[in-house]
């Protein structure tokens, strides 16, 4: 029952996301995958309100696009800026939503450097959103470095997927 509703909401979210997309903006592969490592989420994650408990019918599902980075870089690519513009729109339309930006890296390089790199990536996205007028108090940051890859493989395709910022809703 729970699962079905979750799935329904996910599909709804994907549909909304798809319809909101302009040319060339592709659906992020992560959205298609069930979160595999839910059990590894920190305790904070549990504070996220379950959509099931909300009066579901009328509420518009809030979703955010992931953004991606080049190897060892934390500057925002043009595709990332496009996605962030969309994310900013969502944040403006839902002023009660607070998010956590999670910075991630590919597996190359040390644990320590990648934690710092992930922090810079999350920070770069936050700076941009704040510049667009989103209140900094609505945005938390965390870096997972290379500890939580979306794709565990060791190839260019996996690495490109893993160098990312995830946008997680922490309250709405």
């Amino acid at each position: 029952m729970y699962k079905m509703k979750y799935l329904l909401l996910l599909i709804l979210g994907l549909a909304l996301l798809g319809s909101g997309c302009k040319k060339g903006t592709k659906l992020e592969p992560a959205a298609e995958k069930p979160p595999q490592k839910v059990e590894e989420q920190p305790p904070k994650e549990e504070e996220t309100p379950k959509p099931v408990q909300e009066p579901e019918v009328t509420r518009k599902e809030v979703t955010f696009q992931m953004i991606h980075f080049d190897f060892d870089k934390y500057n925002l690519r043009s595709d990332a800026i496009e996605a962030l513009n969309e994310n900013a729109k969502v944040l403006m339309e839902s002023p009660e939503v607070k998010i956590r930006i999670e910075g991630h890296c590919d597996e190359r390089g040390t644990v320590e450097y990648n934690l710092a790199l992930g922090e810079r990536r999350a920070s770069a996205a936050k700076d941009y959103l704040v510049k667009l007028g989103i209140s900094p108090t609505r945005i938390e940051l965390i870096s997972y470095g290379k500890e939580r890859p979306l794709d565990p493989n060791s190839n260019e395709e996996a690495w490109a997927k893993n160098r990312r910022d995830d946008f997680k809703i922490i309250s709405q």
Binding site: P42, K44, V111, Y144, E147
Partner: peptide, 23 residues
């Protein structure tokens, strides 16, 4: 949880490390 980057105290009695165990 995710524990990372261990380092020994010089007397060998303690270790410090980074952990995500409280988020």
């Amino acid at each position: 949880s995710i524990n990372l980057s261990p380092n020994w105290s010089p007397d060998g009695k303690r270790m410090i490390f980074t952990s995500f165990k409280s988020g």
